[in-house]
Design a binder for these strands. Structure first.
Lengths: 229, 229
DNA sequence: TATTGGACATACCGTCGGTATGGCCAATAC
DNA sequence: GTATTGGCCATACCGACGGTATGTCCAATA
């Protein structure tokens, strides 16, 4: 095709808002890396890990495998970066929701509600809940979790538990947190697959509230976890 | 190597205890199919789905890919058969444990305890909990679950809930069951990865007992799930 | 201006899931 | 007993994909 005006086609790519303290070269590099992560996040979410080829990712990012393997050591490493990004975003959103109120009980409800919402997001469901353990292996999965979302849930659970029973130790708190975390993860799937997601979400909240109310009631009666032995 | 006695090497393979109503040919066929499933179960458990090649499976079963593809439509189909086998065995063991007592509350405890044990078995953990959703896709995973283990858990939860609150509907029961199922699945991982599995298992039982006791207490006070709205 | 090294592109390899084809032999018909 | 058929499986091969080796270009620095 014959182009009339000779040059100046390249500059139409936005001039990359010059970040201070970063050379043009570094900016380009960071840009392609970010693009790769974003495209990968989208494709992994849509088609899953196994069904997403590196060729598809680099095509989407308009680069080649050379670029990908320059920035990441392989497919799994790329997945891991995407995973961390998704987890961090989720943990942050929960954190933000909790900051909106000061009452501990309300904070807990807000946090759990936000977690329940997050766990319904296609990206979080697919990348973290559904495929995370299988792709990363359970060990790495746990390590990642423990540095973000799970810790937030653990804090919530700790606050609720210790409000009624000050004698529970850290390990017991972690145990309850595991149970709740697992329960909420499963709940997310349940809600999303339901014919009426709104109703399903409400039922989940009802059930969780019922369980937590039970815990509160026991605490008021002076029944401690240790008494269950 | 020089073998002195000439023939009769083949018959050393056990004569395949002739099953009545099945021709020799059919018996051989069933045998190779079962062998394939067993070998696949072992390798999938040890190395995971992606890292287990069909070549390794057929080598372990001492057949070729021709045999495998004669009995199964592909790798995933083979996995599915293994999955169902593992699930069925687990559901059955829980069922058996519950039959040992008649008291509903004791049945529930026994059932949940057995489930907690099952979820620690390497085979169940790897094939069902960790990789099941990713390999089968969450849809098929749910469908399979609903036909075996989940249903058992659901029955347990239903019995416990309805003992105190007769007004809960089926959907609410299913919701509680989802939460408990997810909680126990996560608990299994937690227990297995713990430095001291016995202690971890005990903590899980304590926590679950505490939650269930809370539910019972609410029920005794006439507090129903519906009252949480 | 010369040089260096980071940021890619290109070509290629090995593995693996899946397919196409053919052979063997027990079961059935005659 | 012989012929024929079809279930059961082996062998050879293909294409896709993850990963690697090598080369190129150009901005940054000396």
């Amino acid at each position: 095709m014959a182009k009339s005006s000779v040059s100046k086609l390249v500059p139409k790519v936005p001039p990359l808002p010059s970040v201070p303290g970063m050379s043009r070269r570094q900016q380009f590099s960071a840009s392609t890396k970010k693009t790769l992560v974003d495209v990968a996040e989208r494709l992994f979410t849509e088609h899953g890990y196994a069904s997403t080829s590196l060729d598809a990712i680099v095509a989407g990012a308009e680069v080649t495998k050379g670029a990908l393997y320059h920035h990441f050591s392989g497919k799994q490493a790329l997945y891991e970066v995407v995973f961390e990004k998704v987890e961090a975003a989720t943990a942050q959103s929960i954190d933000a929701a909790m900051r909106e109120t000061k009452d501990p009980w309300e904070q807990a409800r807000a946090g759990l509600r936000t977690f329940l919402q997050a766990v319904q997001q296609p990206t979080y469901r697919r990348i973290v809940v559904q495929e995370g353990p299988a792709v990363l292996g359970y060990q790495r999965y746990r390590e990642q979790e423990e540095r973000s979302t799970f810790t937030v849930v653990e804090d919530i659970v700790a606050a609720v538990l210790r409000a009624g029973d000050r004698t529970v130790d850290d390990e017991m708190v972690a145990t309850f947190a595991r149970l709740f975390f697992g329960a909420m993860s499963a709940a997310g799937e349940s809600v999303t697959e339901a014919s009426n997601p709104e109703d399903a979400a409400e039922r989940i909240e009802l059930a969780v509230t019922y369980l937590l109310t039970g815990v509160q009631t026991l605490a008021k009666q002076g029944v401690r976890v240790e008494d269950m032995r």
